[in-house]
Amino acid sequence: MLIDLKGRTAIVTGSTGGIGLAIAKGLATAGAQVIVNGRRPDAVERAVAAVSATGPTPAIGYTGDLGTAAGCAALVKAHPACDILVNNLGIFEPKEFFDIPDEDWSRFFEINVMSGVRLSRAYAPAMKKNNDGRIVFISSESAFNIPVEMVHYGFSKTAQVAIARGLAESLAGTGVTVNSVLPGPTLSEGLEDMLKPAQEKSGKPIEEVAADFVMEHRPSSIIRRAARVEEVANMVVYLCSPQASATTGAAVRVDGGVLSTI
């Protein structure tokens, strides 16, 4: 299958590292003009260079905090149109349910959920008018398998799946597709940072430490390891392609078989 995204403009939020950067690289490799986003100018600059090196069209950087209404509005003002929107921006933080204050619930909702709502609301009307477009929400298997160690994160991921489905139905009969993607444990910088103390203590390679983590916390995993960010990105690039035109309103798993339902 040859995926050709030349002439397409893609916005990937939270794309200076991890899954987001891998998605940006994948879209660029397929020929898309990618707008990379992060909060720190130095991180955005590095990501732009990395993404530009993978594809025929140089990437564009946008520095801004999309976890606020003002930040989303500023992005839309700077880049008023796109063909592909990947709502990847998200945070996670292990915390006991009884220790999660109202402020954390609000912060997770604003960043993980409302950033995608605001940007989809801004970009989808033009996609509908053009009868063409792709919107993807990067959710998680935690949307269905709520992690007791971070319920607020699971709640935000469930919300993304619901929004993606509802938006897809709102765009029924058009050439615009909306889907959510459900990664399982993935070896991104965030997971590496969380596992660093265990790695230093054990002396094992980070991949082995991540596999141990998966089997302890997600024992239903079939691949029995953490996924690579590129494995998640490959699915997202496909969903953003013309070849995925009949896939919409779906919650697509890249969870390594963690979810045991059929």
Rank of each mutant, 00 (worst) to 15 (best):
M194A: 12
T174M: 09
T186H: 05
S202V: 08
Y238C: 08
E216M: 12
H152I: 13
L171A: 09
N179E: 10
I163L: 15
G166M: 09
G175Y: 11
V252D: 01
P185L: 00
F213P: 12
L182D: 02
E200H: 02
A162F: 13
A198D: 11
N234V: 13
I223G: 04
E200W: 00
Y153A: 12
A211Y: 08
S221W: 02
T248E: 00
S156M: 11
V161D: 15
V209K: 01
G166N: 15
K201V: 10
E216P: 04
A250P: 02
V237Q: 06
E231T: 03
V236P: 03
F155S: 15
M215Q: 12
T247I: 15
P219F: 09
H217G: 07
S156P: 07
A226R: 04
E192W: 03
H217S: 06
T247A: 14
S180T: 10
A246H: 11
N145Y: 08
I223F: 03
E231H: 05
S180G: 09
S180F: 04
R228S: 11
R218S: 11
P219K: 02
P197F: 09
R225Q: 12
A198S: 05
S245V: 01
A226Y: 11
A250S: 14
A226I: 07
K157Q: 15
V161L: 13
E230F: 04
A233H: 02
H217F: 14
P183Q: 09
V236L: 04
E231S: 06
V176S: 10
V229G: 04
P219L: 06
P242S: 02
M235A: 13
A162Y: 09
V252E: 00
V161Q: 10
N179Q: 09
R224D: 00
G184D: 06
P242Q: 01
I163P: 05
A251W: 05
K204Q: 12
V229N: 10
P242K: 05
T158D: 06
E149M: 12
K157P: 10
S221F: 02
E216T: 13
A164D: 12
A210T: 06
H217Y: 13
V161M: 14
E200C: 00
E207W: 01
D212V: 09
M194K: 10
V252K: 08
E192P: 00
M194N: 03
V232N: 04
N145H: 12
V161F: 09
M235I: 09
S220K: 07
I206H: 04
K201A: 15
A159Y: 07
V237W: 04
A227G: 13
C240P: 00
S156W: 10
S221Q: 02
Q199S: 00
V151G: 10
A162Q: 15
P197R: 04
L191D: 03
R253V: 00
M215L: 15
S188A: 13
Q160I: 07
N179S: 11
L191E: 00
E189D: 14
S202M: 00
G173R: 11
A159D: 06
A250C: 01
M235S: 12
P242T: 02
A251K: 06
R253K: 14
G154N: 08
N179F: 07
E231G: 12
K201L: 14
S245M: 03
V148K: 15
S221P: 04
Q199K: 09
P185G: 02
